[in-house]
């Protein structure tokens, strides 16, 4: 079906992945001074590519993992500069994916003549 074709479903899953990633960055920023806290990451891109190749993008893994970067003296390894730049990048990518989804819908509108 054209309305839920592979492209649209992949884009929707990418948006979910980006939201999970955004939550992880926000969790890290909220815990920048929490003793013993390890920064979380969501790396869904490779998993999404593999899932897309099998035609089931919904199966992409959006889970969070802990980082193993060296910690500060209080056992925390959040780097605020990195979190904020990643968050800015994440925000731009969400805009890009949203724009791509809208583009898909515009194509469908053109096709149905509205």
């Amino acid at each position: 079906m054209i309305i839920s074709d592979l492209t649209t479903r992949t884009l929707a899953q990418a948006l979910r992945g980006l939201e999970a990633q955004q939550e992880a960055h926000q969790q890290n920023i909220a815990n920048v001074e929490t003793p013993g806290y390890l920064a979380r990451r969501v790396d869904f891109e490779h998993s999404l590519r593999r899932a897309m190749e099998t035609g089931r993008p919904e199966r992409a893994d959006l889970s969070m993992t802990n980082t193993v970067d060296p910690t500060r003296i209080d056992g925390n390894n959040v780097r605020l500069d990195r979190e904020l730049t990643d968050l800015a990048q994440n925000s731009l990518r969400q805009q890009l994916v949203t724009e791509a989804i809208n583009h898909q819908y515009r194509l469908i509108r053109t096709a149905i003549g509205r």
Binding site: Q22, H25, Q26, I29, A30, V32, L80, E83, L84, L87, A88, N90, S91
Partner: peptide, 8 residues
């Protein structure tokens, strides 16, 4: 930083 995250 949290305010910036909120705005994002």
């Amino acid at each position: 930083a949290n305010v910036a995250a909120f705005e994002r």
